[in-house]
Structures are given as structure tokens and as C-alpha cells.
């Protein structure tokens, strides 16, 4: 068991969980979005960690043969980053509208108004 080979993942997990904590615990809509971003960014790090090859270099092909890190996770994460920012943009827009309609972006105050 190469426990030490895994520490990188564990840090990522801790980061993710902080993000998730912010999403669940926070009643503030914008803070929730910030939390989502941290959560997602941490997942990106997880992916990139998977792609890393010891002794590898960036996957831009050189003339002489070399070891390259895995480009596939990079591609996936490029996509995922865009998806993330898209979600953020839409979520924030909704939050702004909610503020317009309810005068608050605290979840509990909104619920009070709805009932």
C-alpha cells in the first residue's frame, strides 16, 4: 500500500469537502455559488492529478521523444471549467433576480416570504 502516493488525492478531497460544506451550510445564495465553484475547482484538480505522469511534461509534442502527461483529463477539464462558469453565471443571474423579487438572498428569509 503506497499510502504516500495518495496524499495528493486526499488534499483534493479535503478541498472538495470544504466546497460542499459551503454549499450545504450557507443560506446565502451567492455564497452557495462560491461554494459550488470551490467544489468544482477541486474536482478539476482531482482530474489533473490523475493525468500527471511522474517525469512527464506538458503534452505538446516535441521533436525528440519524451514522456508526456496525460492530455485527456486536460481536455475534459477545459470543458468542465466552461460548464462551471456557465452554471455560475446563470446561478448568479437567478440570485440577482431573486433579490429583485424578494429583497434578500438569504434562503430562510425567502422561505418565510413564500409561505
Amino acid at each position: 500500500m503506497e499510502i504516500f502516493g495518495l496524499y495528493n488525492y486526499w488534499i483534493v478531497v479535503v478541498l472538495m469537502m470544504i466546497g460542499l460544506y459551503v454549499v450545504v451550510a450557507s443560506g446565502n445564495l451567492i455564497k452557495k455559488i462560491v461554494g459550488l465553484n470551490i467544489f468544482q475547482t477541486s474536482v478539476f484538480i482531482l482530474y489533473i492529478s490523475i493525468g500527471k505522469l511522474r517525469g512527464g511534461t506538458a503534452p505538446i509534442l516535441l521533436e525528440e521523444p519524451a514522456a508526456y502527461s496525460n492530455p485527456l483529463p486536460h481536455v475534459l477539464i477545459l470543458t468542465a471549467i466552461v460548464v462551471g462558469v456557465a452554471t455560475t453565471a446563470l446561478g448568479l443571474a437567478l440570485a440577482v433576480r431573486i433579490y429583485g423579487a424578494y429583497g434578500t438572498i438569504e434562503e430562510e428569509e425567502i422561505e418565510e416570504q413564500e409561505n
Binding site: 446561478g91 437567478l94 433576480r97 431573486i98
Partner: peptide, 21 residues
């Protein structure tokens, strides 16, 4: 509908991120 959509957005994104993991 705004709050409904927002709630869906947060939960949906968590779900999507779980899928991503």
C-alpha cells in the same frame, strides 16, 4: 419560479459534480 430554479441549480450542480467525480 426563481427560487425553484435556483434550488434546482444548486442541487443539480451538486449531482453533476458527483457524476463528474
Amino acid at each position: 419560479s426563481l427560487t425553484a430554479a435556483f434550488r434546482y441549480l444548486v442541487l443539480g450542480t451538486i449531482g453533476a459534480t458527483f457524476i463528474l467525480i
